[in-house]
Amino acid sequence: MPSLERTFILQVPSSTENLVMIRDFVTSIAEQAGLTPGEVADMELAVDEACANVMEHAYGRDMTKEVSVRATLDGDTVEIDVIDTGQGFDPTAVEQLELDKLISSRRSGGLGMRLMKKLMDEVHYEMIPGKKNELRMIKRLRKK
C-alpha cells in the first residue's frame, strides 16, 4: 500500500534561541518517520547547522526575518527543506579546508556544511536571488 505523504512546517523568527525549537521539531518528525536514534541525531544536527547558517549568514543576525523548516515524509524518505529570503551564496565557493588548516588560519567556517553532507544522504541548494533560498536535505529510510 503506498504511504501517504505528510508535510509539517515550522516557521520561526531568525534568532539562534529558536534553534532549540527547530531541533525539537525535527527530532519528533524523524522519530515519527521511524529513523533510528542515531539517524534522528544526525538529522537534528544537520538541520540545526542549516538554520544557524541562515540566521548568521543569509540574514546576518536580523531577527525580524523568518526561517522556515518544512519536513515531508513519504514512507521512503524524510525530506527537510530550510527556506529563507536572505542573502544567497555559492555553495561551491565555500572552501572545505582540513581541520588543522582551519585551526591554523583561525577559522571555523564551512564546518556546518561539511557536517550536513556527512550526516544526510542528499544535500541540494536552490537559490533564487532576491526571492528565496532553499536547502533540501534527504535521509532515506532503511527498510527492515
Binding site: E44, L45, L102, I103, S108, L111
Partner: peptide
C-alpha cells in the same frame, strides 16, 4: 547533551 559546529568552533579558535 548536544554540540553543533558553533560549539566546536570555540575549541578550534583558542587551540593555537
Amino acid at each position: 547533551t548536544y554540540i553543533s559546529s558553533a560549539g566546536l568552533g570555540v575549541f578550534m579558535s583558542f587551540l593555537e
